[in-house]
């Protein structure tokens, strides 16, 4: 018969060693749930592309949608092969491509004015664009293809499966 103390002491060793070994090894780039939550609810701008782990994507999308003014999972109509038109909540979002520049046009409805757009690709890549002030209910911004800050966002924007959040 196994010693009745065995299970209890093995458990104690397991718990103590988990804390000991983890603190000695550190997270080494592993992303925790708290970090996913922080990113998905933050309004901080960042440059370039951040990546959400695939497994955490659905959770990230839900959290982002819950804290956004409006969200749209996918485009319902592609105007051309690259240009998009879709409704994000009551905001119409269009892109128009010219050589070297992509125009982003948001036609706002009444209500809160978004200050940022977050783009979330199906593979977990995410980018944020700080929006200009609207003029007569319309935000129009030129995103230069050569601009290292906006270029990754443009690539995401042109893909119909990219989720768009207005925050």
């Amino acid at each position: 018969m196994a010693d009745p103390l065995e299970a209890a002491i093995s458990d104690r060793i397991a718990a103590l060693s988990l804390a000991d070994e983890a603190l000695a090894a550190d997270a080494a780039g592993t992303i925790g749930t708290a970090e996913i939550v922080r990113r998905a609810t933050s309004r901080e701008a960042f440059e370039g592309i951040a990546t959400v782990p695939i497994g955490a994507l659905a959770l990230y999308r839900r959290l982002r949608a819950a804290s956004a003014l409006a969200a749209s999972p996918v485009a319902y109509a592609a105007a051309t092969s690259t240009d998009q038109r879709r409704m994000v909540g009551e905001v119409e979002v269009r892109t128009a491509s010219e050589e070297g520049v992509t125009w982003l046009i948001l036609t706002l409805a009444a209500g809160a004015v978004p200050t940022m757009m977050e783009l979330l690709a199906a593979d977990g890549r995410t980018a944020r664009l700080v929006l200009d002030e609207p003029v007569d209910g319309v935000i129009q911004m030129g995103l230069a293809a050569a601009d290292p800050i906006s270029a990754p966002a443009v690539a995401l924007l042109q893909h119909p499966s990219t989720a768009i959040f207005l925050i």
Partner: peptide, 13 residues
């Protein structure tokens, strides 16, 4: 005692 994955995931908390 613990795998690399467990060590990192616990530390990430």
């Amino acid at each position: 005692y613990w795998s690399d994955v467990a060590q990192r995931e616990f530390a990430a908390l």
